[in-house]
């Protein structure tokens, strides 16, 4: 069969999301951040919220998220995204407001902001990229780093006796009355990406419906920080991250 018979608009089944622009993304090859950006762009388009969305970008590798998706963004100081999102959503309650945060941002410097925003039940969606490490600054240990995991600041592996164990922010947040959705997903396979899409869609719908705080934790890879190929990082994540951060809903009301 001739290629030209297949390649025409009526046969199109997948393309770069319309809201993702042509800017070349700065992420390392194979980084989970890019997949999650695409999913967010697709969901906003599907819900027809491009004129109503305000994303809050973090400090971390996703600091330039605002350069890649054609929606309104605000850049927050490190860890303060939920506080900024609170202000934006309260001042403009008809907007869909979401934060996009790494585990260093959300679970270390921004722990207080995250917990209190969720406890107040702010009508925001929190997209939490948990790659177990500080990617941007050179792969330092994060609160989410696994026990015995080697990072640039735990060269002999994380010692839980002196640094505690991997912090399960989602489990803590799920206990709070203000939280309507607390779910863990991943983006390493096509099936997983489709599931993530459904959960991010639900989180964005919850923000619009005023149901409270939604948290979607994406168990992710940082292949550069973990010093592996993207494929090996996906496998390592399944083997080592999933037992500690199991995929699935902790709360969905």
């Amino acid at each position: 069969m001739n290629v030209n018979d297949i390649v025409n608009p009526e046969n199109l089944v997948y393309a770069k999301p319309a809201l993702m622009n042509e800017n070349h993304m700065h992420y390392c090859p194979g980084c989970s951040h890019g997949v999650v950006h695409k999913v967010i762009a697709e969901v906003i388009k599907e819900l027809d919220l491009q004129e109503k969305t305000i994303g809050i970008a973090p400090v971390g590798c996703a600091v330039f998220a605002y350069k890649y998706l054609n929606i309104d963004w605000q850049e927050a100081a490190h860890g303060r995204a939920p506080a900024l999102a609170t202000a934006v959503k309260r001042l403009l309650p008809d907007r869909m407001v979401f934060t996009y945060q790494g585990d260093g941002d959300l679970a270390a410097i921004g722990t207080a902001e995250t917990i209190h925003a969720a406890n107040r039940g702010e009508n925001i969606a929190i997209i939490f990229i948990n790659n177990g490490i500080y990617g941007m600054t050179g792969g330092q240990m994060a609160p989410t780093t696994l026990s015995n995991m080697v990072t640039s600041t735990s060269p002999d592996g994380r010692n839980v006796k002196t640094t505690g164990g991997p912090l399960k922010m989602l489990n803590m947040l799920a206990l709070l009355d203000g939280v309507c959705l607390a779910t863990r997903v991943s983006v390493h396979t096509a099936t997983a990406v489709k599931k993530t899409r459904r959960m991010i869609k639900l989180a964005f719908e919850n923000s619009m419906a005023g149901k409270g705080t939604s948290i979607v934790e994406v168990v992710s890879t940082c292949n550069a920080g973990w010093k592996m190929t993207p494929e090996a990082a996906n496998n390592w994540m399944v083997e080592n991250m999933f037992p500690v951060f199991p995929i699935g809903d902790l709360k969905n009301i």
Partner: peptide
């Protein structure tokens, strides 16, 4: 044309057609 490749591509490089 299953589009699996498109879903997992982090950089939106892939367009898939199916007939």
């Amino acid at each position: 044309g299953c589009a699996n490749c498109g879903f997992v591509c982090p950089d939106g490089c892939i367009t898939v057609y199916r007939k």
